[in-house]
Design a protein around this nucleic acid. Sequence first.
RNA 1: GGCCCCUUCGUCUAGCGGUCUAGGACGCUGCCCUUUCACGGCAGAAACACGGGUUCGAGUCCCGUAGGGGUCACCA
Length: 463
Amino acid sequence: MVTRFAPSPTGYLHIGGARTALFNYLFARHHGGKYLVRIEDTDRKRSTPQAIEAIHDGLEWLGLLGDDKPTYQFERAARHVEVANALLESGNAYRCYLTSEELQARREKAQAEKRPFRINSEWRDRTPGAEQDGQPFVVRLKTPSEGETVIEDAVQGRVAVKNEEIDDFILLRSDGTPTYMLAVVVDDHDMGVTHVIRGDDHLNNAFRQLPLIRAMGWPEPTYAHVPLIHGADGAKLSKRHGALGVDAYRDEMGLLPEALFNYLLRLGWGHGDAEIISREEATEWFDLAGVGKSPARFDTKKLLNLNGHYIREADDARLVELVAPKLMLDDEAGRALLLKAMPELKARAQDLNQLAESAHFLFVTRPLTMSEKAASLLDDEARPLLARAYAALAAAERWDLESVDAAIRTVAEEAEVKLGKLAQPLRAALTGSNTSPGIFDVLVLLGRDEALARIADQSGAKE
RNA sequence: GGCCCCUUCGUCUAGCGGUCUAGGACGCUGCCCUUUCACGGCAGAAACACGGGUUCGAGUCCCGUAGGGGUCACCA
């Protein structure tokens, strides 16, 4: 059992491609088979090394690299031509001398007359004469013209198309280079691919590829055409709503790979009520029967919710490594402080950016700039309370959770105010914000000197 | 337009003829917890596109309608 993910390197690894890769990977793993990656770079004009790099990075980040080194389709061009020639020799393909201009003219004429257009090359049954000598030609496959072709698709079910709908598509261009349609079939065969799992935009292609496979007498793969992912508005996913490269999800959105993995898996596939699914469970449960036939819409909120879950589950040291660059933290002391604060910080972040932002207060230098809401907390009523808190904290013998807790609660009690009345201004003074981890945690994290200084800045208390 | 595919809460889905007064999750609303924000807990609003069949019985099968999507290159 062999599956493959075959992206064309004309851009980044987009979200739909990532899901296709995931399904191929999971299906192979589930059945103990092999999962391969093939770069479809036969379009030399549009394929770039940067795109290949981006795809590789994206797959690596998601843990979806192929089991072997990737195959590059362009390098196999000679083999593709060889197969085309074999087809020519066996009479399953023919040289067509129709030029693209002629074809274009026929297409337009058909359109003007509102007739469906089909390529109907007279060269299918015509032997080239002397005048064709040296003239450019393409090689076309002789597809069957009667009856129908049926595909038992593992996702779509039984799909039948009349053979008259299937045109004699091009195998070799007039410059002698192989087309995608030829290349996929040859490569899939040579790589031993048994299950072709891909976007359902390829379903129509399957009806062309099958006659080619049959002409060669090769074993037919099982097809599984997975519905495309749509944007939140139901339209095709475009750059505007989520068709970003996975690198953007990582770098800009601040996602963890396991969150995207889980989200993509649940998009179009379900396993009972399971929502949080580990890689191991996914491997154990994944099947093509569970893949829905209708396109799914991309939902950023749910993705973020999942990401929050995985952040809370993530190892603190790992999160420090991911967040430190966003804070431009390069010293050990800073990292140590971040690590110490991480259990409190990660409890309230949905993405790595929020996580970095929430840590910001730890590293700013006095005097703090107050957010609007923080500033409004520091009113005339609050300042004297802060001064009292300052005194109580300064007098504390030790500086740990227990003692600062006791000190602050005592101040609130003596001043006959609710704890919140004191905690909120304190939070503002200490963090410059109205939201933060628990106030006692903040005091301890900042340390005695820094904490007292920040309180003094806002209360007018003298050190 | 031709061909092909799809249609359960706003979204992702469970459902594979009776157990569905349709379940879960995200989101939303309310309450609880609480020093803030989150987390967590509890409660709630919210769907079988429509119309015909088949059947004792249909969200589940069939047909049509509407809506959505895909594809029609010497791109992949």
